[in-house]
Simulated assay, not measured.
Amino acid sequence: MARSVIVTGGFGILGQAVAQAFAEAGDRVARIDFAPGPKEPLSGALDIGGVDLTDAASTQAALDKVVAAHGGIDVLVNVAGGFTWETLEGGSIGTWARMQSMNLITAATITQLALPSLKASSAGRIVNIGAGAAIKAAAGMGSYAASKSGVHRLTEALAEELAGSTVTVNAVLPSIIDTPTNRADMPDADFSTWVQPAAIARVIAFLASTEAGAITGALIPVTRGG
Rank of each mutant, 00 (worst) to 15 (best):
A171R: 09
D178Y: 07
F191P: 02
D188F: 06
M1F: 03
P36T: 05
V127C: 11
T155G: 06
R125H: 09
G9E: 04
A25L: 11
T54F: 10
R3S: 05
A133V: 06
S143E: 01
A157W: 08
N170C: 10
T193R: 12
A57P: 09
T8E: 06
T216M: 14
D27H: 05
D52T: 00
D64T: 07
H152T: 00
I129A: 03
A108K: 03
K65Y: 03
H152I: 00
I220Y: 03
S58L: 05
S4E: 06
N182I: 02
L88M: 13
S58C: 00
G72I: 12
L104T: 01
Y144Q: 01
A205L: 07
F34Y: 01
A19G: 08
D190C: 03
A68S: 14
A23D: 02
A120M: 13
S58R: 08
P38W: 07
S43M: 01
G164W: 08
T168Y: 04
E211Q: 02
V29Y: 06
A163P: 14
G124D: 14
D188R: 11
P38N: 09
V66E: 12
D178C: 09
V75C: 13
A138R: 03
A57T: 13
S175R: 09
V79R: 05
A198H: 08
R31H: 05
S92E: 01
L207H: 07
G150P: 09
I215M: 11
G82D: 09
E24M: 04
D52P: 00
E211D: 06
I93P: 03
P36N: 05
V29P: 09
D55T: 00
L46G: 07
T84D: 02
T87E: 10
K39S: 13
S58T: 06
G132H: 10
A35P: 10
E156H: 15
K136Q: 05
A57W: 10
V67K: 13
S4K: 05
V77H: 14
S121G: 07
A199H: 12
A137C: 06
V222K: 15
S4R: 02
L88C: 13
P41D: 01
A62M: 15
E89G: 06
P174S: 10
E211C: 04
